[in-house]
Each structure stands twice: as C-alpha cells, then as structure tokens.
C-alpha cells in the first residue's frame, strides 16, 4: 500500500472511489484524487527547483514519528467516534482464530443494539457477506498486498457506514498478529482473539499484539479437551507479556463465556456514552 497518498491499493468493496490509481510506485502522483486529500501532490515542490547558494550540507531536525500520518487519520476517526458516543473495537488475531464467527454470534446476541462492522481482508467479500447475513451493516476493505488496516482506510469506511449515536463499531482487522499492532485506527481498544488450537506460547511468540490489547478472548474453549492444552498457561503467558490484560474464555460455537464478553462490551459502551454526554 502507498502511505504517500494514503489510498494504497486497498479497495472498499462496493464503493468506487472515482479516481483511478494509474500511478506506478515511482510515486509521481499525477492522478486526480476524487476525495478530500487532493492537496497531497508530490514531485512538484522545491525538490526540482534550483536553489542558489544552498550547496552547503545542513542538518534539519525533525523528530517526527514515522507513523505521524496514520496517527492523524486515527485521531480524526477517534474524534468522530467520540462525537457519536460510539465504542469502537479493533478485533485482532491470527487467521482462523474465529473472529468472524465470534462477531456474528456477538451481533445476534446484541439484538437491536445499533452497530456496524468494518471487515479487513486481503481479498474477497466473504466476511462482510457473513456479517450482512446477520442483518448488520458491514463494509469490506480489501487491503490487496497490505498486511493491516490503517487509519485512512477505516476513515473512509466509517464515512460510508454512517454510524449511529451510541453504537458499536467492530473493526475486524486483517488476520495477522504482527503489523496491525502498530497501526492505530482510532479505536477505543484492541481486543485480541486467541483460539485454544494455536498453542499456549502464542502470546510469547507475538508479544506486541497482546501487549497492545486491552482484552484477550480465549476462543474455542469447547475444543480444549481435544487439544491437550492448558488454559491456565494461556492466561499466564498473556499476563506475562501484558500484566494488565483482561482475559475471557469463550466458545462462539457453544456460547460459553459469551455473557461475560457481552457484559464487557455493553459496560464499555455505557462508559463511553456517559463520557460523551459529560463533555
């Protein structure tokens, strides 16, 4: 993906941006953007200009975070969510941990609570299709070669979703325990999903994601008896990389632990809504 123009080769399914990405990655951005970042044009600045008397080497101190641009998009998303009193969860996990199934069951259990879903995957609209089958509005973001969702993609998706006041926004990130840890989307928190088939040492192998998460859902606990796993060791390893992490054992399939997860969600939304009302 291209963080210069921010759009990358990510696609919002069902939404033609109206600008063609005919640029090559030599980054001469001569293309016309059909959205609000039309002031980002490169290659026409002073770089190509002769500046007399400027041959001397000099040092420019910058002290700018490399993620500064993503962080600006994330902050904008966060402001929109705060204005709505909406609670956004960034669901992160490895592929196959059961994120989408868990999300479908969660949506069903939440009943008529307003919510929306952003689905991130490299390709296909399979997951958004599954979410829409529950009746919830969902938008698929295909990241193409990208390994994570970023603040810009989520901002666009949020515009299309028209979030309701006091709603939930579930962002199902690309199944990847590495890169999504580093990209703030403007969410209230990350929730890591870890299934019991993945091995107790998963948190130790991929500490960043579990350190960045407020809650870990230990999923597929119904399979634990067949997997020779130690659920307490899963929890101990999670707390070793993040002493403050909350852990809930769930099974999306049998419904075990789902009440605790739903209580956690509704409690978080109530607190967020109260904060918004107070401000």
């Amino acid at each position: 993906m291209c963080t210069v123009c921010g759009c990358g080769d990510a696609k919002l399914e069902g939404h033609d941006h109206g600008h063609s990405h005919a640029h090559t990655h030599t980054h001469d951005h001569g293309h016309d953007h059909g959205h609000h970042h039309h002031d980002m044009h490169f290659g026409t600045g002073p770089a190509g200009v002769e500046v007399p008397g400027m041959s001397q080497e000099r040092l420019i101190e910058i002290e700018t975070g490399i993620m500064a641009k993503n962080d600006r998009y994330a902050d904008a998303n966060r402001a929109v969510l705060a204005g709505l009193g909406a609670f956004a969860v960034n669901l992160v996990s490895s592929p196959g941990s059961g994120k989408t199934t868990l999300l479908c069951k969660t949506i069903e259990a939440l009943g008529d609570q307003p919510l929306a879903v952003i689905e991130g995957d490299q390709q296909t609209t399979n997951d958004a299709d599954r979410i829409r089958a529950t009746g919830a509005p969902a938008i698929q973001v295909n990241t193409g070669k990208g390994c994570h969702l970023d603040g810009h993609m989520v901002g666009h998706a949020m515009e299309h979703l028209k979030l309701a006041q006091n709603s939930f926004l579930f962002i199902e990130n690309v199944g990847n325990l590495v890169c999504p840890a580093g990209f703030d989307l403007g969410e209230d928190c990350k929730v890591a999903i870890l299934s019991v088939t993945e091995g107790e040492d998963k948190p130790l192998k991929y500490p960043d994601m579990f350190t960045a998460s407020r809650l870990a859902l230990l999923n597929k606990v119904d399979l634990a008896p067949y997997c020779d796993v130690d659920l307490d060791l899963y929890e101990a390893n999670l707390r070793r990389v993040n002493p403050g992490i909350e852990v809930i054992r769930v099974s999306a399939r049998t419904g075990e632990g789902m009440d605790s997860w739903l209580n956690w969600l509704t409690g978080s939304l109530t607190r967020k809504t109260a904060r918004t009302a107070a401000e």
Binding site: T3, V4, F42, E50, I60, I62, T64, I66, K69
Partner: peptide, 16 residues
C-alpha cells in the same frame, strides 16, 4: 511514511 515526511520537509525547507 518516511518518504512522506521527507517530501513535506523538502517543500518547506528548499531541500535539493
């Protein structure tokens, strides 16, 4: 991201 920051700086500091 680094390139974006550099190109922003190049425009504001007359960098060759």
């Amino acid at each position: 991201g680094i390139r974006t920051v550099i190109e922003d700086q190049a425009r504001s500091h007359d960098i060759k």
